[in-house]
Design a binder for these strands. Structure first.
Length: 140
RNA sequence: GCGGGAGGGGACUGGUCGCUGCGCGCCGUUUCGGCGGCGCGGGGAGGAAAGUCCGGACUCCGCAGGGCAGGAUGUCCCGUGGUUAACGCGGGAGGAGCGCCGCCAGAUCGGCGUUGACGGAAAGUGCCACAGAGAAUAUACCGCCGCAGGCCGUAAGGCCUACGGUAAGGGUGAAAAGGUGGUGUAAGAGACCACCGGCUGGCCGCGCAAGCGGCCUCGCAGGGUAAACCCCGUCCGGAGCAAGAUCGAAUAGGGGACCGAUGGCGUGGCCCGCGCCGCCCGGCUUCGGCCGGAGAGGUUCCGGGUAGAUCGCAUAGACGAAUGACCAGGCUGUCGUUGCGAGCGGCAGAACAGAAUCCGGCUUAUGAUCCUCCCGCACGU
RNA sequence: CGGGGCGUAGCGCAGACUGGUAGCGCGUUUGCUUGGGGUGCAAAAGGUCUCGGGUUCAAAUCCCGACGCCCCGA
């Protein structure tokens, strides 16, 4: 984050950190369980981004839940799989308020995510969600 | 001082937000077992968590005793580690191989350094390609010597062939079967002698021991390979937490009891089926029976066992799998500022890598930096 | 997580136990055969034996590590 030019004063904290509210929690209830994973893959609604692929699960009981998949085939090392999963989860956590409330999304990591920073993944998530039509500019 | 190599240490601190599971409190809900939400407290990846190369704990299975086979392990002593397979690690000693130096006529010996999964090659077996005459019972190509024959020559002698003797010399090879000097001989040879060097055995001395040193006589000539078979000493049941244990829905099937007219026996490995008897219904009857027909479950309990759940399971601990993001500081390198340093400022760097039953050992990976040792280059004394 | 196996020419495999010459089939190239192609015949090329150490005079082979790939177990 130190190489980011838009942060002006080094002593103060980042503006996006100050904007965090308790609504940014991501407990186990806001994650998907195995039946929802199978449901999301069966619906086959996917949009590919640069570092990730978004699979949608549109259902009446959906509540903006998260599922993460890091495949051993695209990320052979356990460390890179862990890092990719945490980056995707953090990106989702900070942007969950801008999503449409009637979907669950499943994030699939791609191989290039291994060498990028958090804000790169976050920007990629925003553009991919805009293309998928589930992005709202005003958070609720 | 610079560069490289080997081994070892080390692998940062604070705050905000988030996650996880533990404890406590409050609220909501409940089929009273819990479940959900919020708050607070304290805990939350490694030296290798890795590779899965070895062990152990633990669990289940098997098991009279002994031997064989198979696998593993390997100098000696001391210390140390583990709830000890033989052992690993550290230090020392001994022996072996290799390199350098010294000595020598040579075999070899001495010193220094270094290497290693270092029991035994004199228990036995196998193998040693190619080259070379000959490769483990040593060997006869050239050479040397003897003798016979032939040829040449006046002669001395020379040449050729066959047979025999011979391991001193040549050359081949990774390796050629003790060394020097002498005796001896046709020529030679441990054939014999002296000295030297090695080895088996015996005795003595030193050492806890592996071993080392000295002496002796009858002796011996015996290369390498055991990460070839093997011999000797020692150790070893098999599988693995996806082990295993507990609870156990629905469906199907098994067994018992009771209700019911709905049962019993035989055949049969079991079911189905068939036969006989009993029971029920209808018909006939000479009241002894005969013929025909129908035959079904229900309730409840038990046991095996599937899905699933819990335990196994841990002062980290899950099961689509928690330890992250950001900010600040510190650290190291470099650049600028300065005569140099300090300070300040800018830029860059932080590796290898992520628990799934646990614990040891081994191996492999590893940035900046620090410590020890070694090698090369340059400079100084 | 725990068991087990494999790596040799472009492809599929021998050779390894018992160390010394790397071989077979398909494919490739060249030539002949044919009017041309296929087929057939003849010849040739093509190998860090996955990699690194060790034992040995000598390693694809024996021993020890590393890397990659593939099976099996709920």
């Amino acid at each position: 984050m130190g190489r980011e030019p838009k942060i002006a004063s080094p002593g103060a904290q980042s503006p996006e950190i100050l904007a965090i509210t308790p609504d940014y929690c991501l407990t186990r209830a806001r994650r998907m369980w195995p039946a929802l994973y199978r449901d999301a893959f069966a619906q086959e609604r996917s949009v590919a981004g640069r570092f990730l692929v978004v699979w949608l699960r549109v259902a009446p009981d959906a509540d903006r839940r998260l599922g993460v998949v890091t495949s051993r085939r695209t990320l052979p090392s356990a460390v890179s799989r862990n890092r990719a999963r945490r980056l995707l989860r953090e990106a989702f956590r900070l942007n969950r308020g801008n999503l449409r409330p009637d979907v669950d999304i499943l994030l699939l990591a791609r191989g290039r995510i291994e060498h990028v920073q958090r804000q790169d993944v976050e920007a990629d998530l925003r553009t991919t969600c805009r293309r998928a039509g589930i992005w709202r500019e005003a958070p609720c």
